[in-house]
Design a protein around this nucleic acid. Structure first.
Lengths: 125, 125
DNA sequence: GTTTGACTTCGAGCGCGCTCGAAGTTTTAC
DNA sequence: GTAAAACTTCGAGCGCGCTCGAAGTCAAAC
């Protein structure tokens, strides 16, 4: 396995992105890769720097709770070219709003939990 | 169905907590209720104000992502009396730390998404 | 040229948290 | 008294997001 500046094996990609090789193949199957992943003559996957960049962003979408199906929709739009930029923007903006709402809910719930913690601390001190 | 200040039917409880009747029964089955739910002579559930208070808190635990099994652990401890207060405190504190870490991760990812949004806005204006 | 290990595809399985529906009982309204 | 609505238990099903394992191929090391 030759390491070049240009391409990564799936194991190296897993290392680079923090995802498992299983998850990388799964995401590809689910249509979440922007472009088809290159293959070596052996049919082994070869990831580019652009793939790393995209998967890193996709991971941020996922870590904020965007469903797989919405990520798929986003990449499908991206593949369709510049004309879909407004729609992609709308998708991201809508997602941001949902995330902010959820952050607020979690923060509010956490405040109640914190209050309970102070009660416990009062009783055990 | 008589409405008293003292007890609620499952439908009223659903209304009061924002959960479905299915979910209320599910939580009970999973051992998440602090005390056994009262029954009318007809074997219909009768919820008390204390039940509302507890389910409201349980909902906050859930909305911050505490797994069912941890909520169960928490109520089991609570049922075992005051001696378990340090352990319950530890459980909540540990949960708070996980939630804060996740809030940070989500916030960081959201910043990257926001950045992408500004790029799109630059291109479409 | 043989061994070792990283890769391939494919489909099945799993853990979580509900969610639903069937079949039967009870309550309420008329 | 009767019809409709609300309840009961129970077990099955579902959507999501992986996760795993089997069976086979390929390549680098020796």
């Amino acid at each position: 396995m030759t390491i070049t500046a240009e391409s990564l094996s799936i194991a190296q990609m897993a290392e680079a992105t923090g995802l498992s090789t299983h998850t990388l193949r799964y995401y590809e199957r689910e249509g979440l890769m922007f472009a088809p992943v290159d293959r070596a003559s052996s049919s082994h996957r070869r990831y580019t720097e652009a793939d790393v960049t995209w998967v890193s962003f996709l991971t941020k979408l996922r870590s904020t709770g965007m469903p797989i199906r919405d990520v798929r929709r986003y990449v499908e739009l991206a593949r369709d070219g510049d004309g879909t930029m407004p729609e992609r923007l709308a998708l991201l903006v809508q997602h941001r709003e949902r995330v902010l709402a959820q952050l607020e809910e979690v923060t509010a719930s956490l405040a109640a939990i914190d209050y309970k913690i102070t009660l416990y601390e009062g009783h055990t001190s």
